[in-house]
Design a protein around this nucleic acid. Structure first.
Lengths: 245, 245
DNA sequence: TGTACATCAGTGAACGCGCGTTCACTGATGTAC
DNA sequence: TGTACATCAGTGAACGCGCGTTCACTGATGTAC
């Protein structure tokens, strides 16, 4: 019992997994506000007090679920984008957007958990910020590749598709100072080399993407762009034009 | 006691108002999920059962709050936009966006109540859709005015500012059929005369607007465009270009 | 104007429920010699 | 290999809390004649 795990450790890991799984099931069914430790324990055939051997409080269980949700979304988006890698930045952007929306539609309550209104009384700790950034990192890479490709540099971007759209096709206002330094900081972190105005457009596209998904999921498109498929993919292409992908 | 109200009726109206006010206070402080009839009654010095003379259930009280929130936001946006009426459609668009954001920052939990994740177990009834549409109506009017002004028709729009931007400055893809008819239906309802592609861009700007506000409010911009003032107003101008305002 | 009756507001007790968390405990699993 | 001890998982009862909703009631307000 030196290198490999002890029986206790294996059992512990297994039960931790089962607790999260059941909790995730409850969140999916009723939303995060209704997640209850007692109900999770009941469903697993445990005493409610037993859960405290695994999570020190309800909030810690919630945190674990939030991290898992960010990771699940991140992984899906990373894979979807990677699968379109040979097809150029616009196709990757489309795949990235479709990945976000697809995951959100498949897991509406988990999406609400991370992008909806914050759970009352809950404050997200530090550990969530890494997983939370994964989608942004994908987008940043996309921007950097598109910029590099348009500037003739050889990079991870494949040969650009026929008729590369010019970067920033519509007139670009100069950035006011605070926005300029914010954009520079973001670019330095996730999209090296990308100039400020393009970075800001990326941020706009980012909020646009999640704005549409949230509107669709939370029922705000009912009566206008509903069903939202056509609207969504049209908007995604418009944003690609706007950003210069 | 024929034309004017009876004492009972006045008292009833007054107390109904006070109940909603206290409930709104609680929502503002702790969020909608924590709204409790008993706490409202306690704060008002009433027996909890007394509230049932005024609202048949907790959900009905929530519905009343939701309607009030939509109306408060709608009124603020209508007034802000109207105050800029003499300044052209772009200024009105800016005022409209600033109104939405300003109200949201002033009333974050009420904003979350109407634009955040749905309250679990609560289903919004019919009566909310009128008030919910007020902001959209303002935006529709804006679009219609901008289109009319650009086409030389005399309308409620004032003389266009120096250097009217061309409508739809960036290339516009043809609308796929389902989106085309959705856009036509929306235009018929709130933006008469506006062609499909422009209407869709309006919808995109609409989701963009609320997407940014939600991201800011729910903490998703922390570490990037935070504080968000510069980003927000820059994006608003970019969207104005994009839509053709 | 006064009286008899109907309507309605508000009370207080109760029902039945579920929750998060603590604590002393037992028995099984792991470790050191 | 066997034994003594330490660690840990899981139990079940309890604490203390708050919730939405119902119900029979009392007393005040309004209405019709």
């Amino acid at each position: 019992m030196t290198a490999s795990q002890t029986a206790r450790q294996r059992a512990r890991a297994e039960l931790t997994r089962e607790i999260k799984e059941e909790a995730r099931r409850q969140v999916a069914e009723m939303g995060a506000a209704r997640l209850s430790l007692r109900a999770v324990a009941r469903e697993l055939g445990l005493a409610s007090s037993a859960l405290y051997r695994y999570f020190p409080s309800r909030d810690d269980l919630l945190t674990a679920l939030i991290i898992d949700a960010y990771d699940a979304l991140g992984e899906r988006v990373e894979q979807a984008t990677a699968a379109a890698a040979r097809a150029g930045t616009r196709a990757r952007w489309r795949a990235c957007c479709a990945g976000v929306r697809g995951w959100a539609l498949d897991h509406p309550h988990e999406y609400a958990l991370i992008y909806g209104s914050p759970v009352p009384g809950y404050r997200a700790p530090q550990e969530t910020i890494g997983p939370a950034a994964r989608v942004a990192v994908v987008l940043g890479t996309l921007l950097a590749d598109a910029f590099a490709a348009a500037n003739g540099a050889s990079g991870p971007a494949e040969a650009s598709p026929a008729g590369t759209p010019p970067l920033l096709p519509s007139p670009s206002l100069p950035l006011p100072p605070p926005l300029g330094s914010q954009a520079a900081a973001v670019a330095a972190a996730i999209a090296p080399g990308v100039p400020g105005p393009m970075m800001v457009r990326g941020l706009i596209a980012f909020t646009q993407l999640f704005g549409m998904v949230s509107f669709e999921l939370f029922g705000q498109l009912t009566g206008s762009a509903d069903p939202a498929d056509a609207f969504f993919s049209y908007a995604v292409d418009q944003m690609a034009d706007f950003v210069g992908l």
